[in-house]
Simulated scan of single mutants.
Amino acid sequence: MSDSLYPKATKALADRRRELAPGPEAAFRQFSQAVFQDGALDAKTKQLIAVAVAHVTQCPYCIQGHTKAATRAGATPEQVMEAIWVAAEMRAGGAFAHSAIALETMAPKE
């Protein structure tokens, strides 16, 4: 991750974020903890989903954090990479599907 484009995630930045908006920060942290608890999906599956979504949203912090969390939850490198490929296909699929808008726009009008 480039330090010139994305600042390093530090305790000082986290503290500043919490200081500027303590209520929303606490609510977000609580929400995040609740979402990633075992439920109908286990923690590993949830973290693999998060890895895939992080690649679609292109959040470098999320990619790093959720890749580490997925690994800690027992995901193998092969599972992480497969989740990334699913994300890549879904992103490409969105562009393919939305081509219908361009095709409809260019269609001769009756």
Results as ranks from 00 to 15, higher is better:
D42R: 01
V80N: 07
R91P: 00
F96A: 14
A52Y: 06
E104C: 07
L41D: 02
F36M: 15
P7V: 05
V51D: 04
A87Y: 04
M1W: 10
S32R: 10
G39H: 11
E25I: 03
A75L: 06
M81T: 13
V51H: 02
Q30L: 13
H98Y: 09
A12V: 07
A87G: 06
A87F: 04
A75M: 07
E25R: 13
S2P: 10
M90T: 07
C62L: 07
C59Q: 05
S4V: 10
D42A: 02
F28P: 03
W85I: 10
K44V: 05
E78H: 01
E110K: 11
L103V: 06
P77N: 10
K46D: 02
K68W: 02
R16K: 15
E110Y: 02
T76Q: 05
Q33R: 15
L13C: 00
P22A: 07
T57H: 08
D42H: 05
T45G: 00
A43W: 04
G23Y: 01
A102G: 13
T45A: 12
V51A: 05
L5V: 13
L103W: 06
E104D: 14
A102P: 00
L103H: 06
Q64E: 14
V86M: 09
A97V: 06
V80G: 08
K109R: 15
A21M: 14
E110F: 05
R18M: 13
G94E: 10
L103G: 00
D42K: 01
G94Q: 12
A97Q: 04
K11I: 15
T10M: 12
L20M: 14
I101S: 09
L48T: 00
K68I: 12
L5R: 14
A54M: 05
I84T: 03
L13S: 12
M81L: 14
W85H: 13
V56E: 04
A83K: 04
G94C: 12
A40Q: 11
F31V: 00
A54W: 03
A50S: 09
D15I: 07
V35H: 09
W85K: 12
V53N: 02
M90C: 03
A95K: 02
H98R: 14
A97G: 02
A27V: 13
A21D: 15
K46C: 01
R16W: 12
A95R: 06
A50G: 02
L41S: 03
V53W: 00
C62A: 10
G23F: 00
S2H: 11
E82H: 05
R17L: 15
T71W: 08
R18G: 01
A54V: 05
V35G: 08
P7D: 09
W85A: 11
H55M: 03
A100L: 12
A100E: 08
D15C: 05
S4G: 07
R18N: 10
V35K: 08
A52N: 08
P108S: 12
E78Q: 13
K109C: 03
E25F: 15
K11E: 15
Q64T: 10
S4Q: 15
K109I: 09
T67D: 01
K46V: 04
G93P: 01
A75G: 06
I49T: 01
M1P: 11
K8F: 03
Q33L: 13
A14N: 11
A9K: 11
A73V: 04
A50L: 03
M90I: 14
P22L: 08
H55I: 04
P22Y: 07
A107S: 07
H66N: 10
A12L: 06
Q79Y: 05
A34L: 11
L41T: 03
